[in-house]
Design a protein around this nucleic acid. Sequence first.
DNA 1: TAAATTGTGTAACAGGGTGTAACAGAGACT
DNA 2: AGTCTCTGTTACACCCTGTTACACAATTTA
Lengths: 250, 250
Amino acid sequence: MLSVAYSAEAKQVAAARLAPQPERLEELFCSVPRESFEAGEGVFWEGDQADHVFKVSEGVLRVFKIIADGRRVITGFLYAGDLVGLSLKDRYLYSAEAVTPVRLRRLARKPFQEALEKWPDLRPQFFARVCDEMATAQDQMVLLSRKSAEERVSTFLMLLARRLHGCHPIGRRIHLPMSRLDMADYLGLTIETVSRTITKLVSRGVISPEGRHDFAICKPGKLLALCGDGDSYEEAIDREPKMRQAIWPH
Amino acid sequence: MLSVAYSAEAKQVAAARLAPQPERLEELFCSVPRESFEAGEGVFWEGDQADHVFKVSEGVLRVFKIIADGRRVITGFLYAGDLVGLSLKDRYLYSAEAVTPVRLRRLARKPFQEALEKWPDLRPQFFARVCDEMATAQDQMVLLSRKSAEERVSTFLMLLARRLHGCHPIGRRIHLPMSRLDMADYLGLTIETVSRTITKLVSRGVISPEGRHDFAICKPGKLLALCGDGDSYEEAIDREPKMRQAIWPH
DNA sequence: TAAATTGTGTAACAGGGTGTAACAGAGACT
DNA sequence: AGTCTCTGTTACACCCTGTTACACAATTTA
């Protein structure tokens, strides 16, 4: 069994080396067969030797950390096209599990790094991915640090709406593949609060349920305003005064 | 004035190019003169064109984001030796201000990137820095998402204790250069809660105040336990039951 | 020196979110 | 169809944290 794994890896390295120069980072993963994971199955665990990077080709993944008394924090959900395991030292920083049935391609760290050495054009792409991850993490810190339950849920819905429909003309329908518990652990809330908040949004006519995991966005503008990001200043001042007074650094 | 800036930049580029191969990333900054900032002064702002990377050589910096109604989130404090502005696209993700009087060296993005291209040995160092930043961000997400006020403050104190005294034999004295408001905006709390929590830690004899910005750690073990990280499982089970039941993923 | 300003500590109160529980709905299985 | 299991919803009391208010200390200004 060991030898099989070994030769498979050697083959991967060879394939990555011999392949013509790829234009896009994703192409590195093309030569590798896809693996399948059932919903709930683990892909790797925090603290594992970080031997591989992954590309999700189908389904949704959750990455999370757990502290000793069982509290869980989901640091992100990953969709088709996303790369996993980029920013790490020798051990994974978090665990990864399939939310839905998942298909992904796995590439050993070594050929991945060699490819980056060999083809400089890939490096900016790689760096951009890592930076996106960082930007996302910081937005999440803002959400967890200073947003109310309603703002958190709204932000989450808006995020999915944008992700599913390529940004601009925000998609009117969203699908939530994950459970309420997953949402709660991502948003730093409890399932009950998530549930209550969704109910509130529904009763206000901002969204409308179409089954448990699907919603239609009835009032995208209202939902955007509820996110608390306040892209425009006008948006911010004519909202009802919230629980916290403005604190400007001086 | 423009021409002066121009020639200074050109000089920088030349210096970086001509310098002998540096062994360490920090050495790239040696050729640049140091700039000084007063306490409270801004270094750059979120959304600015990200033209430079910085190395702190003295003092403490805070990096933060602000959402439109004035809520502020401090995403990190940076000390001497830290690099700022590494993980970014073309615009800064956050603002940076001096907490104390600060001296830092500024390097234009272009020569920095060229150095990374030219000397491959620097790339792993650079990547390690970015990954550290990412790891720190994720720990912060855990703190903001699932930790109580007491755990947050304890974690913060422990962080500073480790930072000041190179990790292992945890320093017995810590200095907090930032205001309570800074701490609050970093920990996702209010100044009153920070104040209350510190008072509680003092009254329990875990720490003892030595002026407003200095503390002695009287019971490092206790403080570590209060962090809620539970490095050991034993540590976790014999703590008094906390407000939240264990939630294990299944 | 006194007054104003800034930062911090303390206390009382209130509110948003949580913990617990019971209930409802949607499959899965016999 | 009926039962079981799992997930999600709703209700209510409670509690941690936020809000508000005031007092105090350190520093700056007049």
